[in-house]
């Protein structure tokens, strides 16, 4: 595909007084790609995503979604984005169905199509049988999936998913990963996580952030081969720990690392 990148980010920076939360981050995502956002807690993943979705103004830099500048034409950008924030933005006093209908209306889904659209995303996120329940009464995993369903409403071009599998049980994690994989191609997706397995399972390209800076931005395979030594193939865990400066020279076994993640 020779199309222009759907997401273009150049020199994006967020400064809170003395704290540099995101430091000149630059990347591009091609149509239909899934980009994995990696990084330890507090690396600036969520901040970057919030700036991309227009929830937070950048101190510096440019972010464009489908050719529209996030800061100059926010409404155009928001029509093309589905965003799942870190905490699923749900109202405990509403039922799943009324919540999804509410968000669908906000996203400009036309009146006649709202019910079909709600049905569709509820099915995709596997909350179809929960539609009549109050959100305040369902489990964390279901809230997370309702949040995901909400992001899918209106079939947006770009999906920004901040840790979509947090709080899910192993079976659900696999379902959600399959869902995200099936969305690739049609949607352009940015996915943040600190579960490294997940990146391997879903993403082709990764961007590793550490203390607000991009420390790696490459195809997963290219990244792995870059760190290949004659004796052994470095795992993503090792690469991650080396790049983020969290690992010692003697790397821990992968199993433990996953536990930490």
């Amino acid at each position: 595909m020779a199309n222009a990148p759907v997401i273009q980010v150049q020199g994006l920076t967020k400064r809170y007084r003395d704290l540099l939360a995101v430091d000149h981050v630059t990347f591009e995502v091609q149509p239909g790609e899934i980009l994995g956002f990696l990084g330890p807690n507090g690396a600036g993943k969520s901040t970057t995503m919030r700036m991309l979705t227009g929830c937070l103004p950048a101190t510096e830099g440019v972010a464009k979604i489908a050719g529209f500048d996030v800061f100059e034409q926010p409404l155009e950008v928001k029509r093309r984005i589905g965003y799942l924030p870190e905490n699923p933005p749900v109202y405990p006093d509403m039922t799943v169905a009324s919540y999804l209908r509410f968000v669908a209306a906000l996203k400009g889904v036309s009146h006649g199509k709202v019910n079909d659209e709600v049905e569709r995303v509820a099915h995709s996120a596997a909350v179809g049988h929960m539609l009549g329940r109050l959100i305040g009464n369902i489990s964390k995993g279901y809230k997370q999936r309702v949040g995901l369903a909400q992001a899918l409403l209106g079939d947006p071009e770009v999906l920004v998913l901040d840790e979509p599998t947090v709080g899910l049980d192993p079976g659900q994690i696999i379902e959600v990963r399959n869902l995200i994989r099936s969305l690739a191609g049609k949607h352009t997706i940015i996915l943040s996580t600190h579960i490294l397995q997940e990146v391997k399972a879903v993403c082709r390209k990764v961007l590793i952030l550490s203390a607000g800076k991009v420390v790696a931005y490459d195809d997963l395979e290219a990244l792995e081969s870059k760190y290949k030594t004659p004796e052994r193939i470095a795992s993503l865990e090792e690469i991650f720990l080396t790049l983020t400066g969290e690992g010692s020279a003697q790397l821990q076994p992968a199993a433990n690392v996953q536990h930490v993640a």
């Binding site: 227009g54 929830c55 409404l75 928001k78 965003y83 933005p89 109202y91 906000l106 400009g108």
Partner: peptide
């Protein structure tokens, strides 16, 4: 408080 403001800020509403 409930962080639902992020939803409102990221949808095309003024």
């Amino acid at each position: 408080k409930q962080k639902t403001m992020e939803l409102l800020l990221s949808t095309p509403v003024t």
